[in-house]
Amino acid sequence: MMANYNQMEELIAEIRTVMDDAQAQLDDARRVNPGSPGDFLEAQQHLEEVHLELEKIIQSANPEQRDQLLRVEQQIHQLQNRMILGI
């Protein structure tokens, strides 16, 4: 089953929101008085959840969609790595 355009766009929008939140938590954690460790962990968990969702839709995407989704997946991996390393 091929992912339809609306499903793909909705997922990408959701992923961007989660990534923005995760980046905000990472920025907050870098401050002298970091925010809540629980919020940071929750952001990491949300990022992993949308990553798993993305992996599912990549399987049903057409080649053009897959290319776009794989770029989003790469961005997720980069953000996850930055969060793990705290950079």
Rank of each mutant, 00 (worst) to 15 (best):
E48S: 14
L26A: 08
Q78D: 08
Q45R: 11
N62A: 06
I84G: 09
F40Y: 14
G38S: 06
L69P: 07
A13R: 14
A24D: 04
L41V: 08
L52E: 13
N62Y: 01
Q65F: 07
H46V: 02
Q44D: 08
A24C: 00
A22T: 04
Q7I: 03
A13S: 15
Q68Y: 08
A29G: 09
Q80K: 09
L54E: 04
E10C: 09
Q75Y: 00
E48Y: 10
R31S: 09
I76K: 07
E49I: 05
S36A: 07
E14V: 01
E53T: 10
A29K: 09
Q75E: 12
V50Y: 00
E10G: 12
V32N: 10
V50T: 03
D67T: 13
E53I: 01
T17R: 12
L47N: 09
T17C: 01
E73I: 03
M83R: 01
S60Q: 14
N81G: 12
E55Y: 02
N6E: 15
Q68P: 03
A13P: 06
T17V: 05
E14S: 10
H51M: 10
V72F: 02
H51E: 07
H51K: 15
I57M: 09
H46W: 05
L85T: 00
G38D: 07
F40N: 05
V72D: 05
R82G: 04
A61L: 04
T17W: 00
Q74W: 10
Q78T: 08
L54S: 05
N6G: 10
Q80R: 06
M19E: 14
L69V: 06
A29V: 03
D67P: 11
V72M: 07
Q68H: 08
L79W: 04
Q74H: 13
S36P: 02
L79F: 03
Q80F: 03
H46K: 14
L54R: 01
N62P: 00
H46P: 00
I15A: 12
Q80D: 12
E48P: 05
N62K: 04
A29W: 03
A24K: 08
D20Q: 13
N62C: 01
A29S: 14
N6Q: 15
A29M: 09
A29F: 06
D21E: 13
